[in-house]
């Protein structure tokens, strides 16, 4: 027993310094030098204001924006989470049912894509499926005064294809798409919350 103490303490100390200090700090130095954008949460800045991270979803509720998926944590990026509700939990089935009926009524869609009415794993999913984006085009066309064809082209341009055309599902980054919308047809932030599209939709 006694003879085990020295190697145990020595190796623990060495490995702590090596893998717990040197390794992460070296990676931090390399990351900050080689990939300064990515290593600092891939932030997006517009007019000097940090408006979000490329990869982190944010809540969109206004009619002139494409909406993301439901979030169990209301897009709180400092406390990620899913609902973790069981598939047979009435709370889940009722919530999904309510969202589905509402979207179906608003859009006239025969079938609502599943991703638009279910909560993501992280509560921060930045993406929706292309189908979920197409479904929202009519509302945005009205709110922004853009043609449906143009919006469809914008959505198509924002579909991220799977890796090697194989790995992953096609996805549309909602924040990037909405930023592109704002550049194409700016809206006054204050005026839009209560005007045109909002009342027509609800």
């Amino acid at each position: 027993m006694h003879s085990q103490i020295r190697p145990a303490i020595a190796l623990l100390a060495i490995m702590t310094v090596l893998t717990g200090v040197a390794y992460p700090l070296a990676m931090t130095a390399v990351g900050q030098a080689l990939f300064p954008h990515q290593a600092n949460a891939s932030l997006i800045t517009r007019n000097g204001v940090v408006v979000g991270s490329e990869y982190v979803g944010q809540a969109f509720t206004r009619p002139e924006y494409f909406h993301g998926r439901p979030s169990a944590v209301d897009y709180d990026a400092a406390s990620s989470g899913g609902t973790n509700l069981a598939p047979t939990n009435r709370e889940l089935v009722d919530a999904v049912g309510e969202r589905t009926r509402q979207i179906a009524a608003e859009t006239g869609a025969g079938r609502v894509p599943i991703d638009l009415v279910t909560s993501s794993a992280s509560g921060l999913d930045p993406d929706i499926s292309p189908e979920s984006a197409y479904l929202q085009i009519a509302r945005i066309a009205e709110a922004r005064g853009l043609s449906a064809e143009e919006l469809r082209r914008m959505v198509d341009a924002h579909v991220e294809a799977p890796l090697f055309r194989i790995f992953g599902a096609p996805a549309v980054n909602v924040l990037k798409l909405n930023l592109a919308l704002n550049e194409r047809a700016p809206v006054e932030t204050d005026a839009t919350g209560s005007m045109d599209g909002a009342s027509a939709e609800q």
Partner: peptide, 24 residues
């Protein structure tokens, strides 16, 4: 999730509750 079968949902992407779109 067959509990959704009565709803107007397109579930071809599978059971997406608790999943991320990019991974499907």
């Amino acid at each position: 999730n067959t509990s959704y079968d009565v709803l107007p949902i397109d579930q071809t992407a599978g059971n997406m509750e608790g999943k991320e779109v990019r991974f499907g």
